[in-house]
């Protein structure tokens, strides 16, 4: 994708977000109650409209082919769309699973499971010793530091209680 295409795609996507946001705002959030009060609706509404205008502005500016650099942090940092998508999905999946598991099986165990899975799926590590050592070490270390030494109250698990 060229910079121009990417900018247009972004603008289009943001415009859709802005429209949906604005419609939901108008339909679900009541306006103000007292005099001079823009109410709970005012800000979300203004922001939704502002985003819509800005995304249109971005589209127009890109369309008119102004020299608009994309502004990605590092141009060399292109790893291909496939890999990028995969890594995003892996991280998203692990964090969501971490939240879910922490609630169900507690902090210590879920940390073990997630670090193990990150090593295997995320880092593609194949050395069983390394995997086990790192995930057990991280889980134990996290439990020791956070739950024991610092006294942060982490979930103990609702399905099975451990830690």
């Amino acid at each position: 994708m060229t910079d121009k295409q990417r900018n247009l795609f972004t603008a289009a996507l943001l415009f859709v977000v802005a429209s949906v946001w604005t419609v939901i705002t108008v339909q679900t959030i009541p306006g103000g109650f007292s005099p001079g009060d823009i109410g709970a609706r005012g800000f979300p509404l203004i922001l939704g409209i502002a985003l819509g205008i800005l995304s249109l502005g971005l589209a127009i500016k890109t369309w008119m082919a102004c020299p608009l650099p994309l502004g990605v942090e590092d141009e060399t940092e292109d790893f291909g769309a496939g890999r990028s998508t995969l890594s995003v999905l892996i991280v998203l999946g692990h964090l969501v699973a971490y939240g879910f598991l922490m609630d169900k099986i507690g902090f210590a165990l879920s940390t073990f499971v997630i670090t193990l899975s990150m090593m295997v799926i995320g880092l593609r590590e194949r050395n069983p010793l390394k995997i086990l050592a790192f995930s057990v070490g991280t889980a134990f270390g996290a439990w020791l530091v956070f739950s024991r030494l610092l006294g942060v109250y982490m979930p103990l698990g609702t399905m099975i209680t451990f830690g």
Binding site: L109, F112, V113, L116, I131, L132, I160, T161, F162
Partner: peptide, 18 residues
Amino acid sequence: KFTKLSLGLAIALTVAPV
């Protein structure tokens, strides 16, 4: 084999204290 083992270990650890 390793995954199975570690899964087994995890289950053993979780069930024991309950």
